[in-house]
């Protein structure tokens, strides 16, 4: 099994298309979309239709905070630009897309894997797993051997040491990491649709279950197309600039 993991796609059709193509070329045969399918970008309908198609074929999809906001669940944590994008997105969605988003669970468990957008400690509270303490909480609450998440946009791998405490590792793109199942691993796969680490390439990860190997990737895509669409849609300029700077 080669499981491709995508998070924080944020209505960026070009980025998710490029990541899917990259994963397929590497033999991915399962997909998981880890929330925040929409928000920020100009292609919510196309992205949701694409993901729904994969869901119909067995892909895992969980709900993110932007997805929840887009179907009317209030979220005080969102900033001005995010709220503007949420309002715009809401207007684009048809009944069909709304129903799809409303059907999404907060978590999915499959054998020894837990899929969740933010922290497994309280999935509905959208806690950012941005440090060792939060990672440890998520690992303890999630219990699963592998927890795959998004919400935080930078790629990061947390794992339990011999004393049960969480340790952090900043993954090197393309370098496979043996992730043996007698430890716990929490992978933040990075944002496909809005990277924020100064590199505009889209993030995703690939998990090889048989070989217990996890590899993080960065995929270069044509963000100029995405930027043009964001501007044409009249979304805040900052959301366009971010994609170019990757920050």
């Amino acid at each position: 099994m080669k499981l491709a993991l995508f998070a924080d796609i944020h209505s960026n059709l070009e980025a998710i298309t490029a990541c899917l193509a990259h994963a397929n070329a590497l033999g991915a045969d399962r997909y998981a979309f880890l929330g925040d399918l929409v928000g920020y970008g100009a292609d919510p309908v196309a992205v949701l239709d694409l993901i729904e198609g994969h869901a119909a074929n067995g892909a895992v999809v969980v709900l993110g905070n932007h997805d929840a906001a887009a179907i009317g669940r209030p979220d005080e944590a969102l900033n001005r630009n995010a709220l503007a994008a949420v309002a715009w997105t809401r207007a684009q969605l048809g009944d069909h897309q709304r129903a799809f988003l409303a059907s999404l669970p907060l978590t999915v468990t499959d054998d020894n894997i837990l899929f969740v957008h933010a922290s497994a400690a309280a999935p509905e509270q959208w806690i950012y797993v941005s440090g060792l303490r939060e990672a440890q909480d998520s690992l303890r609450a999630g219990k699963a051997t592998y927890i795959f998440s998004g919400h935080v946009h930078e790629q990061k791998l947390y794992y339990t040491g011999a004393d049960g405490k969480a340790l952090a590792f900043h993954p090197v793109p393309g370098a496979p990491i043996p992730a043996a199942k007698y430890r716990q691993w929490l992978a933040i796969v990075g944002s496909a649709g809005q990277p924020r680490d100064g590199n505009s390439a889209a993030c995703y990860a690939l998990f090889d279950g048989e070989r217990e190997r996890l590899t993080f990737y960065r995929v270069v895509y044509d963000h100029t197309v995405t930027i043009r669409k964001i501007r044409a849609a009249g979304l805040p300029e900052r959301l366009a600039l971010r994609l170019e700077r990757g920050a």
Binding site: L157, Y159, G161, A162, D163, K165, L167, F169, V172, A175, I177, P178
Partner: peptide, 11 residues
């Protein structure tokens, strides 16, 4: 190895 998590970091 710089490409791998350091399992000995805590020891």
């Amino acid at each position: 190895h710089g490409h791998l998590p350091d399992l000995l970091a805590e020891e």
